[in-house]
Design a protein around this nucleic acid. Structure first.
Lengths: 127, 127
DNA sequence: CGGACATCCGTACGGTCGTACGGATGTATG
DNA sequence: CATACATCCGTACGACCGTACGGATGTCCG
């Protein structure tokens, strides 16, 4: 009985993938980061803040046509993650992108991925 | 009664955010795209396939120490989205990154975001 | 042709996430 | 000090996603 396929079909590649692949920990961390961007409300908020520097919760809800609850909840997560900073002026809280964090990289990702997602949806339409 | 804050606190910025902001449709499309990357199994699979060109389901499960069910399910989603291609050889199905699709960009995002997520977790540890 | 095998598929379950609602906090106005 | 207001928070509900299990499909071997 000649086994055409043993347990590892390609042991060499399996070994390489094990060695240089992403660890489960890193992958989990990366996933939580990407999860924060995988929400329409949050991406629109980040994009809007990138455009106009700073906005308060109510204006943000107005500009994006979402409920204030929704905006507040999204901002809470973004704030906890360190993506946005706050500035109080009276009873109003203004949000802006955090200085220390991913502005340039995430902007590139956002901008490029938007056009990419458009291309992807067009290809789906064709097929 | 002088209103300190009317409904739009900063009408100019609200208008700009409305005009140039991301539409709800684009944001939804972008979110579905990012959702595909927001899973540890899927990112590790994409990364592994980028490393070693192609792998079959069983070897992939072996290399990443996950169940074959998990690998198969992840590959199904990636295949539906057009991220990976398949090649049959006998009873074995080999998967590789799709030619027509986001290899360069997603690789950059993946690589850079991995180190970024490490930095982020270190900052969390400090605080 | 029959058994073994790699992979896929349908279903059901548990956990997680976003939303909506009510109330709480703190601030400015008169 | 009392009212109005912007925002936050805790809770509960509904929807979606990933996993696990059983079975189906197609392929190779003898």
């Amino acid at each position: 009985m000649v086994l055409q396929h043993a347990h590892p079909v390609d042991p060499d590649r399996v070994a390489r993938a094990q060695e240089r692949g992403i660890s489960a920990d890193d992958a989990t961390r990366l996933s939580s980061l990407l999860s924060l961007l995988s929400d329409p409300v949050r991406t629109r908020i980040l994009y809007a803040l990138d455009l106009v520097e700073e906005l308060c919760v109510g204006d943000l809800a107005l500009a994006l046509d979402i409920s204030e609850d929704s905006a507040s909840y999204a901002l809470r997560l973004l704030r906890t993650a360190g993506f946005v900073q706050t500035r109080r002026q009276g009873r109003v809280v203004f949000y802006r992108l955090a200085d220390r964090f991913p502005e340039p990289l995430l902007e590139h990702c956002l901008r490029e991925l938007i056009s990419l997602s458009r291309v992807a949806s067009e290809e789906e339409d064709q097929s």
